[in-house]
Computed example of a mutant assay.
Amino acid sequence: MTHKTWLITGAGRGLGAQLAQTVLAAGDNVVVTARDSEAARAAFTAHTDRLSIYVPFMARPSLQLKVSALTWRAI
């Protein structure tokens, strides 16, 4: 049996988390993105051997402020 690998965004909670849990329960692999790594880890307690969690660096508020300041600086 061939297992698929899914990329699911917004999987830290809500619909994204539910979809990822359903896919994991079906036996497929999942890569999820979430803004909050702790919420994402808490959402997934089973099938963690087939799960990868990615938190984009822009999801961290301190980095958002720094990037925003760089973006809006007058040249």
Rank of each mutant, 00 (worst) to 15 (best):
M1Q: 10
M1W: 03
T2R: 15
T2E: 15
T2Q: 15
H3D: 12
K4I: 09
T5H: 02
I8S: 02
T9R: 05
T9K: 05
T9A: 09
T9S: 10
G10D: 08
G10M: 10
A11H: 06
A11N: 11
G12L: 05
G12R: 02
R13S: 13
R13L: 06
G14H: 07
L15N: 03
L15Q: 11
L15S: 00
L15Y: 00
G16H: 07
A17N: 04
A17I: 11
A17P: 12
A17S: 13
Q18K: 09
Q18C: 04
Q18I: 00
Q18V: 04
Q18P: 00
Q18D: 11
L19Q: 07
A20F: 05
A20Q: 01
Q21T: 11
Q21H: 01
Q21P: 02
T22Q: 13
V23A: 02
V23D: 01
V23Y: 01
L24D: 04
A25K: 12
A25S: 14
A25L: 10
A25T: 10
A26D: 12
A26V: 01
A26T: 02
G27L: 05
G27P: 03
D28E: 07
D28T: 06
D28R: 05
N29Y: 07
N29F: 06
V30F: 03
T33L: 08
T33R: 07
A34S: 14
A34I: 07
A34G: 09
D36N: 15
D36K: 15
A39Y: 02
A39H: 12
A40L: 13
A40G: 09
A40F: 07
A42M: 08
A42Y: 03
A42V: 05
A43Y: 04
A43H: 09
T45W: 09
T45Q: 15
T45R: 13
A46E: 15
A46T: 15
T48Y: 05
T48Q: 14
D49H: 12
R50L: 11
R50W: 11
L51E: 10
S52K: 08
S52D: 10
I53H: 02
Y54H: 10
Y54I: 11
V55T: 15
P56D: 03
P56N: 03
F57M: 03
M58N: 09
M58T: 07
M58Y: 12
M58I: 11
M58F: 10
A59N: 12
A59I: 01
A59C: 11
R60A: 06
P61V: 04
S62I: 00
L63I: 10
L63H: 08
Q64S: 08
Q64H: 00
L65D: 08
K66F: 01
K66R: 14
K66N: 05
V67I: 11
V67P: 00
S68M: 13
A69D: 14
A69T: 06
L70H: 04
L70N: 06
L70C: 02
T71A: 08
T71W: 06
W72C: 06
W72I: 07
W72M: 05
R73P: 01
R73W: 09
R73A: 14
R73D: 06
A74M: 14
A74Q: 13
A74K: 15
A74D: 08
I75S: 11
